[in-house]
Structures are given as C-alpha cells and as structure tokens.
Computed example of a mutant assay.
Amino acid sequence: MRPFCSAAQWQAELLDVEAYLDRLGITGPLEPDAETLRRLHRAHALTIPFENLDILLGRGIDLDVDVMQSKLLRSRRGGYCYEHNMLFAVLLERLGYEVTRLYARPLLDAPKPLPRTHLMLSVAVGGETYLADVGFGDEGPLEPILVADGTVSDQGGWVYRLAREEGTDKEWVLSLKRDDGWFPLYWYATEAHHHIDCVVANYFISTHGSSPFTGRVFLERIAEGWRLNLNHRKLTLTRADGTVEVRHVADGEVRELLAKQFGIELTEEETAVVVAALPAPEPS
C-alpha cells in the first residue's frame, strides 16, 4: 500500500470509542454487521445535531480527531458534515468495518452547480455496500441505505431512493420523496478520498463567502417523527406526515431555544455573538 493511502491518516487510534458509544447511548455487543451499522447510524443521527456555530464564533472547524471528539462527544455539541462523517467513519473502522470516504455534489434544485464538498461514506458489510451519511442535516437519512440501483428506503415517513446516474455504473443520485415526486439531494461517484482532500474542502466551506455555512446561523436536528431546521431566524418544524410549522425566532429566546431544541449549551458571551450574526427582525 502506498504511504498516502494508509489508514493512519484518519487518526482512528485517537478515538475514544467508549465516550462515543456513551454519547449515543449504545450498549452491548457490537458485531460489525449490517444490524449494528443500522443501530449506530440511527443513534448518531438522532443524538448529535447539525450546526455551524463555531464558524460564527470565529473558531473555525478543525478536523483533528481529538478536537472533533472533544466538541461532539465531550462537550456534547454538534457539527457539520466533515465532523459528523469523519468521526463516524473512524468509529466504524475501530469496530471492524471497511469504510470509504466519498465526496458528493449537493443538487437541491440549485440554479447552478454547487461545489462537490459534501462528505459521505460507503461501508462494506457482508458482501454488500451501504451508503452511510450522518452529516446531511434534516434531509439526510436516519439509517444506512443499501447501494443497489433503484433501492427505496422508507425511514419513518421519509422515503429515499438511490439510483445509478443514467449511463454510468460508478455514479449515484440520492433522492428524497416529496408530494410532487423525487427531489434529488446529491450526486456522488465511488472515488475514494484522502484526509488532505477533506482539509482542503473543509477550508473552503468554512471560510469562503459563497459557502452556505459562513455568515448565517444554521442548525438542524432529526428526531423520531419530525425534523427541525433553524436558518437564521426562520425555525421550521417538518413532521413525517408532511405538515410544516414555521415561525421566526426573537433575540431573547436564542439561548434557550438552542439548549432545549438542539441540546447545545452556549455561554452568554457565545450567545451574544450568535445573535449578532442574525439579520434584523422582520417588522411586526
């Protein structure tokens, strides 16, 4: 194996597996099979929120394993795709899974191509391959999805389809079912990526002015039967039955809202920085 392909680049040996399992509430034997993968994926998605607050707080996003686990596990914060999926990948590897890091291009009905910067995972289990992605926020899957052309996965009312890109055998599109049909979430190819690729893409997405994660407050949470999204002041609750509630958040409720709805405890000083990043309230 060439040196740059070594598993050591991912720092898996630094992961505190017991702290991770404690954060997820997972106990008992963990054989590296499809059922354990499903349990771990589901627990992570339901437990650790998606959030970009460290960018707004001026701390940036550090992809060192010890920094990520200190934040997401010990401090019980959240993160975005690199933190979620890089940490989840090393947990899986420590438990005996074969994991490949892949890059996806979000589609999302965007009027122009979006950068291919979303990190997701391919996991080999018992002769089959699963898409694993605990870092796509409130539209992401709750459980792994079998990689087979035309796979449809109903996950508590959120229905996903994974299909080959037309005319290819190595390119895939993940879509989410909506009332008007299939809504494409992202495209990906089965090309393995390395740690330095993550560092470069993470730098762009955490610093560039055109990134969706700079200059705005953005948090998401998945729960049983509903999903929550805070985009600046707009708080959207979507239920599995398709009903949606939307309201706007006032400055004075930000700290309590983050704690109660997203499980994120901020100091008064941190809250003030987050509030300052919000746009002016809409006139009543």
Rank of each mutant, 00 (worst) to 15 (best):
Phe4Pro: 12
Phe4His: 12
Ala7Met: 13
Gln9Val: 08
Gln11Ile: 09
Gln11Pro: 07
Gln11Val: 05
Ala12Arg: 07
Val17Ile: 12
Glu18His: 14
Ala19Asp: 06
Thr27Ser: 15
Thr27Asp: 15
Pro29Arg: 08
Ala34Ile: 07
Arg38Asn: 12
Leu40His: 02
Leu46Phe: 09
Ile48Trp: 02
Pro49Lys: 04
Pro49Leu: 06
Leu53Ser: 11
Asp54His: 11
Asp54Arg: 08
Arg59Asn: 12
Gly60Asn: 05
Gln69Gly: 05
Arg74Ser: 13
Gly79Ser: 08
Glu83Ser: 03
Phe88Ala: 02
Arg94Pro: 01
Leu95Thr: 01
Tyr97Ala: 00
Thr100Met: 05
Thr100Phe: 00
Arg101Leu: 12
Pro106Val: 10
Asp109Lys: 09
Asp109Pro: 02
Pro111Arg: 05
Arg116Ile: 14
Arg116Cys: 11
His118Arg: 04
His118Cys: 04
Met120Thr: 15
Met120Trp: 09
Asp138Trp: 09
Arg161Gln: 12
Val173Phe: 08
Leu176Cys: 10
Lys177Glu: 15
Pro184Tyr: 10
Tyr186Glu: 06
Tyr186Leu: 07
Ala192Ile: 09
Phe204Glu: 08
Thr207Gly: 11
His208Asp: 13
Phe218Glu: 02
Ala223Asn: 12
Gly225Ala: 03
Asn229Ser: 14
Thr238Gln: 15
Thr238Pro: 06
Arg239Gly: 03
Asp241Gln: 04
Arg247Trp: 13
Ala250Met: 12
Gly252Pro: 05
Glu253His: 12
Gln261Tyr: 12
Ile264Tyr: 09
Leu278Pro: 04
Pro283Glu: 15
